[in-house]
Every structure is written in C-alpha cells, then in structure tokens.
C-alpha cells in the first residue's frame, strides 16, 4: 500500500513477508469457507430442495416459480423504486430550495420537515400510510420511500450547494441574476452533476428499503420469496433465500458500478475538481443516506 498514511513504503524483504502472510491468511479463510459449506452439505441444504427451481412440487411449474420471483417480485420492487425515486427527488429539490430561502419562517419550516422525516424509520412511515391514511400496500411503500428519501436527498443537495465555491453565487449576482435565477441557472445544475454518484447510490438505498414492504404486505421480491416458501413448505426457504439474495445483489452491484463509472467520468471531464471533492467529503463524508436499510 504505497501512499498510505499508515505505513512506510515496504522494502523487498517486507514485501516478501507480506506476500507469504497474505497467502497463509487467504488459505485459512478459504479453509473456513470450505468448512462452512461442508457443514451446509451435511445438513442437506444442497439436496433435492433445490428442485423447486427446476421441477417444483404441488403442481407448479419451474416457469411459475421463476416468473413469480423475477417478473412479479423483482418487478414490484423495481416498480416501487422507480416511482418513488423521481417523486422523492422532486420533493427533495423543493425542500432544499425552500431551505435556502431568506424568509426565516420558510427556511425554518423546511428544516423542521427535513429533520422530522430524517428522524423517523421508513417502516413507521409505511405503517402510517397503511394504517392511518388507509393507502394500498403499494401506495404506502411508495409514500414511505418518497418521504424518507426526499429528506436524505435534500441533505445531499444542501451539502452540494455548500461545497460549491461562493464565487458562483457572487458571479451570478454580479451579472444581474436574481437569487432564484442564480440558484436555478448557475448553482443547481452544477450541484446535481456533482452529486449524481451520491444520488445513484441513494437509489440503491431506496431499492433496499422497498424490501420493508414485506412487513406491510406489499408483494415485492422479499414478500414473494416468503409467499413461495409459505406455499411450498419451510424447507424451501434456503434455496429461495439464496436466489432472492442473488437478485438483490445483482441489481444493487450493477447500480453501484454505474455510480462509480459516472463518478470517474465526471472526474475525467474536470467537472469535479480535486478541491471540491475534499469539501464534499467533509460535508457529507459517507453520504448519510447510504447508511439506511
């Protein structure tokens, strides 16, 4: 690890020792993995129960099982996420702009709303929608996702505005733009481009949060998995779990890759100067939203 603040650059002898130690530790870890998998095989976790994906019991076809998971389950997950994301974004934009207002009452209210939404679990918001407002499960899930993520995205936009050099605002004012025009024409376009990777990773969070829908009875991917093992019997939980996990990881890894690629593109095009990066690191060091469910 050259360039680390923790170590001096290693010499040839240290490098040799490190390589050997690395291989030994690696082998130990592989052995641990093999031992765990062997234990799973011994308990029959890789036996005929996997036939649920090729030749399922109870008169269902393999196509039915796959369709229920990939088309219906994952489809419902994506439908909730794809509807909630733009709505959350619009609401976030409104909240973030109101927060910059010169009128104390307006900015104070916006801040209060953001704090309230940020402080309450997504699940509770979904329960509110379901039990208090009488929404359908789908609407309740979308409502929870929109409100919660709007607050997080509003914070991301605020951090972006704070990270933008002050000269941008001053330049805008200098050429005679109003404050609102400066925000709309000068600041926000830059902030949004700057924050695109954060926004994409927030979309991953939103997608993961949609799995809470299973508690309110929205038939998304996780609930579909649950309905499947309720139908087939609980010994099928393991294979269904593994496939469900793989589907979530597949989609989320793909999105994370997109975020990384966008990030690099921006850096390469000089849209993200080094100095700005440091500032955003401080303002939103790990991207607060990334830590949700």
């Amino acid at each position: 690890m050259s360039g680390s603040v923790l170590y001096d650059a290693p010499g040839p002898r240290t490098r040799r020792i490190e390589r050997i130690a690395s291989i030994v530790v690696g082998l130990l870890l592989v052995a641990l993995l093999v031992w765990v998998i062997k234990g799973m095989i011994d308990r029959g976790l890789f036996d005929a129960r996997w036939e649920v994906f090729t030749d399922p019991p109870k008169g269902q076809t393999a196509a039915d099982v796959w369709r229920s998971l990939v088309v219906i389950g994952l489809g419902a997950t994506l439908r909730a996420a794809v509807l909630a994301a733009p709505l959350a974004f619009v609401l976030a934009l409104v909240l973030a702009v109101l927060r910059t207002s010169k009128v104390r009452l307006v900015s104070g209210l916006a801040t209060a709303v953001i704090e309230l939404l940020r402080g309450v679990p997504v699940l509770l918001m979904m329960l509110f929608g379901l039990l208090a407002f009488g929404l359908t499960a789908y609407e309740a899930v979308v409502l929870g996702l929109v409100l919660y993520n709007a607050a997080i995205v509003a914070e991301i936009i605020r951090a972006g505005l704070a990270a933008l050099p002050k000269g941008q605002l001053e330049a805008g004012t200098a050429v005679g733009l109003t404050r609102w025009q400066t925000l709309r024409i000068v600041q926000l376009p830059q902030v949004l481009r700057l924050m695109l990777p954060s926004l994409i990773s927030q979309f991953v969070v939103l997608l993961k949060d949609s799995s809470l829908g299973f508690i309110v009875g929205y038939p998304e991917l996780l609930r579909t998995m649950q309905l499947n093992y309720s139908f087939f019997g609980d010994q099928y939980r393991f294979p269904l779990f593994v496939v469900t996990l793989a589907l979530y990881l597949g989609v989320n890894f793909a999105l994370t890759r997109v975020a990384i690629i966008v990030d690099r593109r921006l850096a390469a095009r000089g849209q993200k100067p080094e100095q700005l990066e440091i500032n955003t690191e401080i303002a939103i060091p790990t991207n607060p939203g990334r830590t949700s469910v």
Partner: peptide, 29 residues
C-alpha cells in the same frame, strides 16, 4: 487498509455485500 492483500479482499467483499443487501435479508439470514 491492511498490507495483506487477502485481508483487503475479504474486507472489501464483506463491506460490499453488507452495503448492497437489504437489512431485512440480513435479519432473515
């Protein structure tokens, strides 16, 4: 941040899986 590459790989793998799995699935596990 370890100098050992295998530990770095394990660390990165665990973190990536942790960050991309819904908490609900972690609970089910």
């Amino acid at each position: 941040v370890s100098p050992l590459k295998s530990l770095r790989i394990v660390g990165a793998t665990l973190v990536e899986i942790g960050r991309n799995t819904p908490l609900t699935l972690v609970f089910i596990f």
